[in-house]
Amino acid sequence: MKWSDLFGRVKCVVIGMIHVKALPGSPLGCLKMSQIIEEACREARIYRDAGLDGVTVENMHDVPYSLSPGPEVTACMTSVCAAVRSVCPSVPVGVQILSAANQQALAVALASGAHFIRAEGFVFSHVADEGLVHACAGELLRYRKNVGADDILIFTDIKKKHSSHALTSDVSVAETARAAEFFLSDGLVLTGISTGALTDPQELIEVSRAVSLPVLIGSGVTVENVDRYLGASGLIVGSHFKEGGVWSNPLSARRVGDFMTQMRRLRG
C-alpha cells in the first residue's frame, strides 16, 4: 500500500493524536481498561466527525517510558486500537508504542487492523531521555516480513525530539533522510526538540528535496502556522488539539474543528 492509496491525497494529510490514558502497570495508571478505551473512542469520534484524514494511537501517558515495555502494553494497546478501528472504520489508524517499541507496534497494528506505525530509532543510534536507542531498520523490516504485515506502512522519525544527536552531529537531517529512504522507510517524520515544539520549516524543504518519500511534520503545527507546512505530505497534530494547547489536557472539539476549517480553506 502507498501513501496516496491509504489517505486519498498526496499533500496536507491531517493525522490526529489519540494520547491513550496511562495503561495498567505504568506509574500513573489508575483507570480500568474499559475507561481507557471509552476515552480513546470519544477522541476518535471527534476526529472522525471533524473530517481528519487519519489518527494515531499512542501510549503517551505511560511516563516514564521504558525501552522494554511489558507484554501488558502490547495487549492493552491492541484492545484500544481495535476499539478505535470500530469507531473509525473508514479512517486510517496508526500505532506508536513508547519508547521505540516498534515491533510491538507492528504486532498491535496487525492484530487490530491498523494501517501504519510510527517508529523511533529507524536509522542511526541516538541518546533519548529513556536511554540509548539503536537503529532498528534491519530487524523491524524483517519482522514485518515474517509476520505477513507488508501492507502496514512504517513512518520513521529522523533526528527525533527528546533526544541528543551529538553522536551523529556530522550527519545532516537530509543525509539522515536519505539513509532512511535507502533502508526502505515508507515515510519520514520531522519534529522540533520536544512535544509540541515548532518543527523547522527549512528542514522540511531540505528533506523534501533530498528524498522521494512522504515527509510528515510531527510537532508544533497550529492553526496559526499551518500555512508554513503546506509542502508537507502529512501533519501530525496532538498538542494543539488539546485544551490550552497542552498535550496532557482533554481533546477540544472546538480546536479540532477550527483547525480543519482552516485546512479546508488552505487546500482550496
Rank of each mutant, 00 (worst) to 15 (best):
R118K: 11
C136F: 09
A114T: 11
E120M: 15
E130S: 13
N146R: 15
A135V: 07
A137W: 14
D129F: 11
G121C: 09
V127A: 12
F122M: 00
H134G: 06
L140A: 13
G121L: 10
V133S: 01
L140F: 10
V133T: 02
A128K: 00
A135R: 14
F124S: 09
K145A: 08
H134K: 13
N146F: 10
A114G: 08
R142Q: 10
Y143L: 07
F116H: 05
E130M: 11
R144W: 02
H126Y: 14
C136P: 07
G121V: 11
G138Y: 05
A119S: 13
R144C: 03
A119I: 03
L140C: 06
G138S: 14
R144L: 02
V123C: 05
L141R: 14
I117E: 03
H126Q: 04
F124E: 08
E130A: 12
H115A: 04
R144A: 03
H126W: 06
A114F: 12
A119T: 06
N146H: 15
A135C: 03
L141M: 15
K145F: 00
A119K: 01
A128N: 01
S125I: 00
E120A: 13
A114N: 07
I117A: 00
L132D: 03
F124W: 07
G131V: 08
A119P: 03
G121D: 12
A119E: 06
R142N: 10
A114V: 11
H134D: 09
G121P: 11
G138E: 14
V133R: 01
H115R: 11
G138F: 04
N146L: 15
V127W: 08
F116R: 06
L140V: 14
G121A: 14
R142I: 00
H134A: 12
H134C: 12
A137C: 11
A137K: 02
G131N: 08
D129S: 07
R144M: 03
V133F: 01
E139H: 08
A128S: 15
L141T: 14
L141E: 11
Y143I: 09
A119V: 00
E139W: 06
L132R: 12
S125G: 08
A114S: 14
F116A: 06
F116L: 07
G131F: 05
L132G: 05
L132W: 09
V133G: 01
H115V: 02
H126K: 12
G121N: 13
F116Q: 03
G138W: 05
A119L: 06
H126D: 00
V123E: 04
L141H: 10
F116G: 02
S125Q: 07
E130P: 08
A128M: 02
A119H: 08
N146Y: 07
N146C: 15
